[in-house]
Amino acid sequence: MQLSEKELEILEILEHDSRLPLDSIAKMVDLSEKETKEVVEKLEGKKVIVQYSTDINWRRVDGHEGVTAMIDVKVTPKRGVGFDEIAERIYRFEEVKAVYLMSGTYDLSVTIEGKSMSQIANFVSEKLSTLDSVVSTTTHFIMKKYKHDGTIYEYDDDDKRIVVSP
């Protein structure tokens, strides 16, 4: 889909901060609020804008830390459908947050979230590894999130400058 310069500008603004009011976006791209709303609705209708989301730093909420794992999966693709069929079977599991087709040693990268490491281990051993096309898996647990989708999660606000006094 070919987009106009204004449409691309609106997408970049929304990607950075989807909570901006339409009137602010309209001013930024030099369109009326009505025109801006029409562009956004068009992009939503064409599934260019798929969803608006909120990034939450769950480490700061007591009792809601959870565990996130990235699983490298080697699969045997099926004739006629390639990797699409097995990828769809995997992304339909509730625990799965993302599935990507990758180049390199492994074919798919799967991101899942659970309440504990044992819950993720059960997912891998009872659900993922038992799928016919899955040849092998390697699980990596995320220990700490520093930056995600351009948002920095952990940084030190303390001023590290040396105090100089006369």
Rank of each mutant, 00 (worst) to 15 (best):
M1N: 04
T105R: 07
K145R: 07
V48L: 11
L131C: 11
D157A: 11
V134W: 07
P21H: 14
I112T: 11
S103F: 04
F141R: 03
E7S: 01
D55F: 03
E95V: 10
F123L: 09
D107S: 01
V124Q: 06
A98V: 07
V164Q: 11
F93V: 08
I10V: 14
H64V: 06
E88L: 09
K144N: 09
T76F: 15
I152S: 04
T138Q: 12
L43I: 06
V99E: 05
T138W: 04
E126P: 02
H148K: 10
D158I: 12
K127C: 07
R60S: 14
F93C: 11
L3T: 01
V39G: 00
T76S: 14
M1E: 02
M143I: 14
I49Y: 03
V81D: 06
Y52E: 13
V134L: 08
I56N: 04
G80V: 04
K27A: 14
D158K: 13
Y91F: 14
E12N: 12
K160W: 10
V50S: 13
S32Y: 04
R59E: 15
H64S: 08
V164I: 15
D157L: 13
L11A: 09
V50P: 08
F93D: 07
V50D: 14
I152E: 06
T130H: 13
K74L: 14
E9R: 09
E9I: 00
S129Y: 15
Y155S: 08
V73T: 06
K46A: 06
V61N: 03
R92D: 15
R60E: 15
S116R: 01
Y52W: 12
V40L: 12
V39E: 00
Q2Y: 04
Y100V: 03
G150P: 03
V124L: 06
S116V: 02
N122W: 13
K115G: 09
T111M: 06
V61P: 01
D156K: 01
V110R: 01
I25Y: 11
E38S: 12
L14Q: 04
D30V: 01
K6S: 01
D157N: 09
M102V: 06
E41N: 10
E7T: 00
W58A: 14
H16A: 12
A69L: 09
D17S: 08
